[in-house]
Nucleic acid binder design. Structure first.
Lengths: 220, 220, 220, 220
DNA sequence: TATGAATGAGTGTTCATTCAT
DNA sequence: AATGAATGAACACTCATTCAT
């Protein structure tokens, strides 16, 4: 499944169809510039003039490539989601045990932090605003699809005795998901830890807990 | 410490000074209405007319109570932060062992999800935009103060042998913090779990991990 | 029937409801200025800045009184139609014979040329454009209502032997209607004929024909 | 006389001179497409992109055939006027009596409704806008020339005792002219009456009047 | 002939804010 | 405290037109 349809790899086709013109280098460049601005200032606070200025053209000229400001951010977000879901799917298809798959999914999540930093930032900050537009309904669908993937692995791990059975699978997924994505707010490449280190750190705490020694906590 | 100064309980004084009129019931009511709108639609997407409509007055009339749209959101956010920090401080002053204090801080965090839902939502969604204004610099200071509190407890726990020593205290704080606040996006009162249940669930996973049986993960 | 509802004299109420504010002198003045510009330059070629300039305010200030450019022209047109239909109804209710009533209706039509010159001009020139917007559907309904009035009189006159029976009532109505309204294009007050003279001239030709002496034409 | 000069048949020459390329089939096809769009949506509301889309090319490519949007509508209108005036001239040169000639002119007018529907529609709806451009001054001249033809015939008919003397020739011309052209708004081929029937119907009412029996109307 | 990218001026509209009443 | 009118700057978007390829 892609982020927009429930079959095939039609996303690219659809993207081309939904916008003014076919994918081009110029177009991709503009999307990249826009994504950076959206991430830095927020979608609403970024004006089409900001984007055009950055590209060295007039604001009206942007409409030769896109038919609206929304179609630009659409391209930013769907490109990210298409990539993410494709990676998740690969991990799922490895046939490994649930704990291994889940670890890999955590690594994939943190691994997108750098290449898709702008898109993830936009999704964190502007999703609440963007979701009110019909055209972004596909984002909800993509989100649901991802949730299915995670929850299935957690439940499989519980069934296999790898994960404790007294936690809620869906709730646990949400806590994991949010923890990963929201890191985009403070993670900066070049710091003490790279995203790989981040992922391993999180996997440690997630699976084995912060506490030392014997298990002492009991669920209510 | 308050959210805005590093001594005393000057927040209220500051609020009165920075705004048009003294705190009043009418004023508090307006802040509440505005907070709901900011949370639902986002700060930028909420117009002063929206707020005025909700209150049954004309938009210009709002300026008898507040001197700008920003001063309204300021009041929303600082009220929340003042309350939060006061609660944290109480937990710290209990003199309990680090693990107990940390548990309590997690409970406090999840505990604000309901009474301060709107404010937390605004902080999650609009912080990236609001931080560009000088007047919100105090939010960064408050954030730093909170970080100090958490990191100190984590390190104390590591020193006392309660927490594993191979995790980064600051990084761990961030992961915990994000996990708590971002829950505001999907947590709805009246669901399967209340915030107390949510907190206990998280404390379980946080301290003891998701995995069953022997510790198997090793930090790189 | 009014131009917008099929009962009562609710037009005024509806007009107030459909626009930003209640009718006011300021508002009426602005409508009048706009009507003149629409008539002179056409609806599309008249910018809201043109209207605002004429009123000595900024273009954005117009939106304190109206919620769109279309709502301004809406008010122009509906005011005219309400007045026209009210007058027609009075003529119909006189209970006179068809020929007398029809004469009166012709006089009413030409009689609106001066007081409603701008509105009629807009209707002639911009109707083709405006009708594509849903909000102007009521104009079609008003048009239909008027057609009913005319056609009924023509048919009554034919039944009574006052009008020749070998002409099509609906077609005849249209020819009459067009002849009257289109005169707005060239009629200028202060010329050789006033609208009363125009009406009498037309009534003469309409009823008795252009030819002298015996009837010679035969319908095919 | 042509529509643009007062001697010779220079219209074609002028068209070629004023435009980018010589008359060609491709060009004529584009003019026809444009005329339909102008008629349906209005000149201003029709974009050059609309026209290009209809032709399956890009908007910029239109400028290989025409040097402006106005030159396209110019060609639409002048083609119509050239044809109309040529037909009128033929009728005038028949040497028949005024009433016969006038009847023929009415038939010619209605007869253009079908073949020149688009051009007539544009002239009715957009003339008010187009006349503000210098380049369309020739339309006024053509209009004057046509008026001369009609008024001369009406006056001749009055002098010959065929038409009643108590009507104003110029005014009568205008009423006739408008009645014919404005019919383009509602006339649809394939309806109850074709344009021939329409013409005969109008001639009947025009010459003999709507009333039965004795003349009763008196001019004021 | 046509494309594809861009221009530049303009369009209707929005909105936080001001201020006399 | 509130109204009603207005400001002024900005906004997303449109469109006829140009031009190198």
């Amino acid at each position: 499944m892609t982020t927009r349809k429930n079959s095939g790899s039609a996303t690219t086709k659809r993207r081309r169809a939904s916008s003014t013109g076919p994918a081009s280098e110029r177009r991709d460049h503009l999307v990249k510039l826009a994504a950076e601005l959206f991430a830095r200032k927020g979608f609403q606070a970024t004006t089409v003039r900001n984007i055009a200025d950055e590209a060295g053209i007039l604001s009206g000229s942007l409409y030769h490539h896109f038919d609206s400001k929304e179609s630009i951010v659409d391209e930013v977000l769907s490109t990210f989601l298409d990539d993410l879901i494709a990676r998740y799917r690969t991990a799922l298809e490895s046939g490994s045990d649930p704990r291994t798959v889940l670890s890999e999914m955590v690594r994939i999540g943190f691994g997108t932090l750098e290449p898709h930093r702008a898109a993830i930032t936009v999704m964190q900050n502007d999703w609440n605003y963007l979701r009110q537009f019909e055209r972004f309904n596909y984002l909800v669908k993509a989100e649901d699809e991802v949730e299915q993937m995670w929850v299935a692995q957690i439940k499989a791990g519980q069934a296999a005795g790898q994960f404790r059975a007294d936690v809620d699978a869906k709730l646990t997924y949400r806590l994991i998901r949010d923890t990963i994505w929201v890191a985009v707010r403070w993670f900066r490449p070049g710091g003490r830890l790279n995203t790989t280190g981040l992922a391993e750190h999180y996997i440690t705490v997630l699976f084995d807990g912060l506490a030392t020694g014997e298990r002492t906590s009991q669920r209510a």
